[in-house]
Design a protein around this nucleic acid. Structure first.
Length: 579
DNA sequence: GCCGTTTTCGGCCCGACTGTTTTCAGTCG
C-alpha cells in the first residue's frame, strides 16, 4: 500500500463522510491528512514499523490506527462500510463543477439519483429544476458541468511546464490593458507544484472592470464559470481553468499572499494573525477589536506584521516553513544564478538534436562554465545508444571540443555517459570502460514496473558502483501520466549518502524527478543533488528554471548542489572516486 | 478528528460568486 493509495482512500472517506452530512472538521481532518500523506517523503509502512505515525502533523490516535490498518491488511474496514452506504455514483457527482456534497445528497435522497448518467438524464428531462434549492439555471449549469467533466481526461491537472508559460502569456496580454499596474502568476504555479489544477492570475488596478471584460472575452474562452467585480473564472477551450483576481495596488501584498496559497499555509498565517488580535484576508489585516484595517502593499509587510521574515512561495505548503520562519531558520534557497554547470545532456551521437560543439556553445551562452556530454549507452537502441567503439570515438571529439572551448573561452567540456541500469541489474558498460569516462550518470529506463525489491536492488547496484557519479531521474516518473518505479527511496538515499553518489533533480517538466519532498529528504540524509537539464536541444537548456523551482520547493541550498560548485570542487569530487 | 504558555472541551480561516432565496445556503478556492 503506497502513500498515494492511502491518501486516495482518505480522500474518498472524506467525500463520503461529507455527503453523509458529517461535521466539516472531521471531514477536513481526513482531507488534510490525505494531502500530507500524498507527498510525504517517508513511506507510511516505514513509519508504522518505527511506531512514528504520530510524527505526521494532523495525525492523531484515530487516523494513525487507520493508516496502520491499511499498511497491515491492505484494506480499511471503515472505508468498506462507507462504500456500502454511499453509492459510488453519488461520490462521483462531487467531481462535477457546481455539485457539492449537499446537492449530491439531495439528488440521492429526494430523487433517488445515484449515478452520473441518471443525473444527466434527469437534468435533460427538466426534472431537477423543481427539487429543493434548484431552478432552471442550476439545472442547466449541472448539464454543462457534466459535459465538462466528461470532456476532461481522468487526470485534469496540467504539467507545470505547460501551465507556467501559458499563464505568462495570458498575463502579458492582460497587462497591456490600460489601468493594469502590475500582475503576477499566483497559486500553485507560483509555488511550482509539478502539476497545476487551475491557473491563478493576479493584477493590480484601481479599475477592475476593463480587465474583467477583456478577460472573459479572450478568444480561447470556452465557458465563463463566474464573473464578478473583482474575480472571474474561465474554462478555456483546452480544458484549463483560469481565475483572475483584480485588486488595488495598496492591497497587493495581502492579495498576492492570499492568492499564492497554499490553503494550508494561509490557514496557518490566519491562525497566527488571530493570536495577535488580527483577522487576515486577501484585502487587509483587520483589528478584531475595532475593525481598523492594516493595508500591506507588499508580501514582506504581510509576513512582517506576523513577526515573520518573508517566506519564499515554493516553501508555502505548511511543511514546517512557518516554524522555521519563527525560529529564524528558513533555508537560503538556491537560485538559478548559483548554477555553473550542466552534467547531463545529449547530442546527435545518440538522440539529441545538436553536435557536441553546438551544445557546448549553447550552454556557454547560457552562462554555464562547464558541461558533461552524456549520450545514451549501447542497450538504449531506440535512443541510438553508443557502442563501446562509438563511445571511445566520441571521446576524441569531446576532447577536441574541450581543447578548443577551453582555449577560447575557458569553458570546459567533459565526457560522460548516461548508462542504462539494465533489467537484470547490471550496468550497460563494463567497469574498465566506465573508468575511462569523466562522469557517469546511471538511469532507469526499462523494467520500471518490476517488483519493489528487484527494482530497488538494481538502483542500489548502480549507486554503489564506484564509477557511477549520479543517478539520473531516480524514480523514472513521467508527468502527468506515469508513476515512478516502486523504489525504496529511503534505501536509495542511504546508499547514495554512503557511496557519495549524487541524485538528480531532472529539470524537464515531464520529469521533475526527484520531486521536491524526496529531494528534501535526500539532502537531510546527506545526499548530494545535481540539477540537470537532460537537454536534447539548446532550448531544453532553458528548462533549468523548473529544476531550480523544484529544488527550492525541496528547501535546497546551493551548497548541496553539485552544479553550483566551481570546476576545482567538481573535479575534486569526481576524481578520488575511481577516475 | 485534532489539539492545547488561555482550553482535555469546544473551538477549528476567510471571502467571492451564484442562484434561489426574501436574508442565505451552497460551492469554490
Amino acid at each position: 500500500m503506497t502513500n498515494r493509495e492511502i491518501a486516495n482512500i482518505f480522500v474518498a472517506v472524506a467525500d463520503m463522510l461529507e455527503i453523509q452530512g458529517e461535521i466539516i472538521h472531521r471531514v477536513l481532518s481526513y482531507r488534510r491528512t490525505a494531502e500530507t500523506i500524498a507527498e510525504y517523503p517517508r513511506e507510511m509502512r516505514a513509519l508504522v514499523a518505527e511506531g512514528k505515525l504520530n510524527e505526521i502533523p494532523g495525525v492523531g490516535k484515530v487516523l494513525a490506527e487507520k493508516i496502520q490498518e491499511l499498511v497491515d491488511t491492505g484494506r480499511l474496514e471503515f472505508y468498506e462500510r462507507l462504500k456500502a452506504e454511499v453509492p459510488e455514483g453519488v461520490v462521483e457527482m462531487l467531481r462535477v463543477n457546481g455539485v457539492g456534497p449537499k446537492k449530491a445528497k439531495m439528488f440521492w435522497e429526494t430523487a433517488d439519483i445515484t449515478t452520473l448518467d441518471s443525473l444527466e438524464a434527469a437534468a435533460k428531462d427538466g426534472k431537477l429544476r423543481d427539487l429543493p434549492g434548484m431552478g432552471v439555471k442550476s439545472e442547466a449549469k449541472i448539464l454543462e458541468g457534466i459535459a465538462a467533466y466528461r470532456r476532461r481526461s481522468t487526470d485534469t491537472r496540467t504539467p507545470l511546464g505547460i501551465a507556467l508559460p501559458y499563464a505568462e502569456t495570458i498575463l502579458a496580454r492582460l497587462l497591456e490593458i490600460p489601468g493594469a499596474l502590475k500582475g503576477t502568476v499566483a497559486g500553485s504555479t507560483r509555488r511550482a507544484r509539478p502539476t497545476i489544477g487551475d491557473l491563478d492570475l493576479l493584477v493590480a488596478s484601481e479599475d477592475a472592470a476593463p480587465l474583467m471584460e477583456a478577460f472573459i472575452h479572450m478568444p480561447e474562452v470556452a465557458r465563463v464559470l463566474g464573473n464578478g467585480e473583482s474575480k472571474s473564472s474561465l474554462e478555456l477551450a483546452n480544458g484549463l481553468q483560469v481565475d483572475l483576481r483584480v485588486l488595488p495596488p495598496a492591497r497587493w501584498g495581502t492579495a498576492l499572499q492570499y492568492f499564492s496559497g497554499s490553503q494550508a499555509h494561509n490557514i496557518r498565517l490566519r491562525e497566527l494573525a488571530l493570536k495577535q488580535g488580527l483577522s487576515l484576508n486577501e484585502h487587509a489585516f483587520s483589528r478584531v477589536s475595532d475593525d481598523g484595517e492594516i493595508l500591506c502593499a507588499t508580501e514582506e509587510e504581510v509576513y512582517a506584521t506576523l513577526g515573520l521574515p518573508w517566506i519564499p512561495p515554493e516553501l508555502r505548503e505548511d511543511w514546517g516553513e512557518v516554524e522555521a520562519a519563527q525560529a529564524g531558520r528558513l533555508p537560503n534557497l538556491i537560485t538559478i544564478d548559483d548554477i555553473r554547470s550542466d552534467l547531463h545532456m545529449h547530442t546527435t551521437w545518440s538522440d539529441g538534436k545538436l553536435s557536441i560543439r553546438e551544445m557546448a556553445e549553447a550552454a556557454r551562452l547560457r552562462g554555464r562554465q562547464f558541461i558533461v556530454i552524456t549520450d545514451h549507452s549501447r542497450s538504449a537502441a531506440v535512443a541510438n545508444g553508443l557502442s563501446i567503439e562509438r563511445l571511445l570515438t566520441q571521446q576524441q571529439e569531446v576532447r577536441a571540443v574541450d581543447a578548443e572551448m577551453r582555449e577560447r573561452y575557458g569553458f570546459r567540456v567533459f565526457h560522460g555517459s548516461e548508462i542504462e541500469i539494465k533489467a537484470d541489474g547490471t550496468l550497460d558498460y563494463p567497469d574498465d570502460i566506465l573508468a575511462q569516462l569523466d562522469f557517469v550518470v546511471a538511469s532507469l529506463h526499462v523494467g520500471l514496473r518490476q517488483p519493489r525489491e528487484q527494482v530497488t536492488q538494481r538502483a542500489l547496484n548502480a549507486i554503489s558502483n564506484p564509477h557511477v557519479d549520479l543517478m539520473g531521474h531516480p524514480r523514472g516518473q513521467l508527468i502527468p501520466d506515469r508513476e515512478g518505479a516502486d523504489l525504496d527511496m529511503e534505501a536509495l538515499f542511504a546508499a547514495a549518502a554512503k557511496h557519495d553518489t549524487a541524485l538528480e533533480i531532472n529539470s524537464n517538466p515531464e520529469r521533475l524527478d526527484l520531486e521536491a519532498s524526496y529531494a528534501r529528504r535526500a539532502v537531510e540524509l546527506g545526499v548530494k543533488i545535481c540539477i540537470d537539464t537532460d537537454a536534447h536541444s539548446a532550448s531544453d537548456m532553458d528548462l533549468l528554471r523548473f529544476g531550480i523551482m523544484t529544488a527550492r520547493r525541496g528547501w535546497i541550498e546551493a551548497r548541496s548542489v553539485v552544479n553550483t560548485w566551481a570546476l576545482d570542487a567538481f573535479l575534486n569530487w569526481v576524481t578520488p572516486r575511481g577516475k
